[in-house]
Amino acid sequence: MESRTRPRNMTGVGRVLVVVYAILALAATGRSFVQIVLRFEHAPLAFTLSAISAAVYIIATLALIFSASRAWYLVAWAAISFELVGVLVVGVFSLIRHDLFPEETVWSWFGSGYVFVPLVLPFVGIWWLVTHRPGREVAVPESEPMERSSW
């Protein structure tokens, strides 16, 4: 049986992680766009931080997709680390300085508007980066059918 190699980030949990980041990138981008266009003057700091979070999720998504390369792997580390600090700092400030966050953002209240996914996601992303360094590959059988019993 022939086998080929595939970067580990494009299998199983890696795919799910990329999909979740992509969904969050789309949601944060849409939310920040609407907030900035319709009500920017009401909460400029909060809405600017929403736009920053959207950019971070877009960068993290791309970096995870291409993280088999050393450069993209480092970009993924930077983006996910920034995301973690952002959600923690904005989460704390949204609780203690509600006047700075009169409207909810992606990271306010630790991402409660997104079922706390923004709080959990960077920890999962960091775990993934630690366990899936570039250059590590997994052998994938060329023509092995997927077993239904494993679903």
Results as ranks from 00 to 15, higher is better:
52 I>R: 06
104 E>I: 10
127 W>K: 09
78 A>F: 09
79 A>S: 10
42 H>L: 13
63 A>E: 03
37 V>D: 15
53 S>V: 06
72 W>H: 09
143 S>Q: 13
86 G>I: 06
140 V>G: 05
83 E>V: 08
125 G>Q: 03
66 F>C: 03
138 V>N: 09
124 V>R: 00
61 T>R: 01
104 E>F: 07
95 L>S: 14
84 L>M: 12
122 P>Y: 07
150 S>K: 12
32 S>T: 04
86 G>D: 11
114 Y>S: 06
24 L>G: 05
130 V>E: 08
18 V>R: 05
90 V>H: 07
58 I>R: 00
39 R>S: 15
121 L>Q: 04
31 R>A: 07
38 L>V: 14
69 S>P: 00
79 A>N: 03
40 F>K: 09
36 I>Y: 05
30 G>P: 02
61 T>C: 00
24 L>W: 04
60 A>W: 02
138 V>K: 10
115 V>L: 15
73 Y>M: 04
116 F>H: 00
114 Y>V: 09
143 S>C: 03
109 W>H: 13
101 F>V: 02
42 H>T: 14
10 M>Q: 15
83 E>I: 06
99 D>I: 02
38 L>N: 15
21 Y>D: 02
119 L>W: 08
17 L>E: 01
138 V>W: 00
45 L>E: 00
147 E>C: 01
23 I>C: 03
59 I>G: 09
39 R>K: 15
11 T>I: 13
91 G>T: 06
17 L>K: 05
61 T>W: 08
60 A>D: 00
108 S>C: 09
92 V>F: 13
39 R>H: 14
9 N>K: 06
141 P>F: 05
60 A>C: 05
66 F>I: 05
12 G>A: 09
142 E>F: 12
120 V>H: 02
146 M>S: 10
55 A>V: 11
45 L>Y: 06
84 L>T: 02
67 S>A: 09
72 W>V: 00
23 I>T: 03
32 S>E: 06
44 P>G: 08
8 R>Y: 05
127 W>R: 11
49 L>E: 10
1 M>V: 11
143 S>G: 14
102 P>T: 08
127 W>E: 08
70 R>E: 12
106 V>E: 04
111 G>L: 06
23 I>K: 02
99 D>M: 05
18 V>N: 00
107 W>D: 05
115 V>I: 14
104 E>P: 06
93 F>N: 06
139 A>G: 09
35 Q>F: 12
43 A>W: 04
115 V>N: 15
70 R>L: 10
